[in-house]
Computed example of a mutant assay.
Amino acid sequence: MLIAQISDIHARPDLSSLRTLGRAIGWLRVFRPDALVVTGDLVDDAWREGYRLIAESLHALDCPVHLLPGNGDDVQLMRSEFAAIGTWLGAPGPLHFRVAVDDLTLFGVDVTVAGQSYGDLLPHLPWLTSALAAVTTPVLLFMHQPPFRIGIEVLDQVGCRNGHALLGALEGMDRQPLAILCGHVHRPISGRLGSIPVRTCGSLCPPNPLLLEGRDDLPIIDAPSFLVHDVSDGRLISHIVSIAAPA
């Protein structure tokens, strides 16, 4: 089972990241994953036309597409512009999704908070724990911000709150997700929430600098990237796919 993940397109009228998205979509059309998950921050500044252009690109794929909003998205615009694509559980609530892909279940948790740049898991834990308890297949759990601090202060200030509550809920369950898969950071990172692997997807716009422990703001040498998750026999391997700049 191959699940692709794209995150943080941040489309804007200069079209630069939309061109990068086009190259990623072209690669995925040939690769043919079983599903694609987009983990938020699709456009900047509520640019409606950007949502429409992204929707047109995603229509070129033969696989199902599942979308989550990020802290920079307009949830209502997403709901209207992706009405033909979105697999959300219902209106007008959060843009959660729960979908089965053969013997795998994908969960998406919309952690956005109206009018705020941070995310919050706490309001969604009753739904998530109830839904997870009813699943008998392996699970991948997607959200925008990772559920812990990553050490880049400007991102942690708008991170996801109550990750400890998520850990407490998941530790009491018979079946835990194979991984928690996020965006937000604009670079691939890996960590753990308790014993559960947490991974973030790179971005399709320029990656963020690695501002750790007061280090200098060094020039960015990372390429835009996305992830391909290979799930087989209850184990997960995540591959980074970098997108070279056009010649």
Rank of each mutant, 00 (worst) to 15 (best):
R29T: 05
V30S: 04
V30H: 03
F31G: 07
F31S: 08
R32C: 11
R32D: 15
P33G: 13
D34M: 14
D34G: 15
A35E: 12
L36S: 15
V37F: 12
V38I: 13
V43I: 11
D44N: 07
D45S: 06
D45Y: 01
A46V: 02
W47L: 03
G50K: 08
Y51R: 00
L53F: 03
L53S: 02
I54S: 03
I54T: 05
A55T: 05
E56F: 02
A60L: 13
D62R: 09
V65W: 13
V65Q: 12
L67Q: 05
L68G: 08
P69D: 09
P69A: 12
G70Q: 00
N71G: 10
G72L: 12
G72K: 14
D73T: 10
V75H: 10
Q76V: 07
L77I: 09
L77R: 12
R79Y: 07
S80R: 14
E81N: 02
A83R: 12
A83M: 07
A84V: 00
G86A: 13
G86H: 13
L89M: 07
G90N: 05
P92N: 10
H96K: 09
F97E: 02
V99T: 11
V99R: 15
A100Y: 01
L104Q: 13
L106T: 11
F107S: 12
F107R: 15
V109Y: 14
D110L: 03
V111F: 10
T112M: 12
A114M: 04
G115N: 01
Y118C: 09
G119F: 03
G119K: 05
D120P: 09
L121Q: 05
L122W: 03
P123Y: 05
P123G: 02
H124A: 14
H124S: 11
L125C: 03
W127S: 07
L132T: 09
L132W: 02
A134W: 01
A134K: 08
P138I: 14
V139Q: 15
L140Y: 10
L140I: 13
L141M: 06
L141C: 05
M143Q: 15
H144W: 08
Q145T: 09
Q145L: 08
P146T: 09
P146W: 07
P146E: 11
P147R: 13
R149S: 01
I150A: 05
G151F: 00
G151I: 01
E153G: 04
V154W: 00
D156G: 02
Q157P: 00
Q157M: 10
Q157W: 10
V158E: 08
G159F: 04
C160H: 11
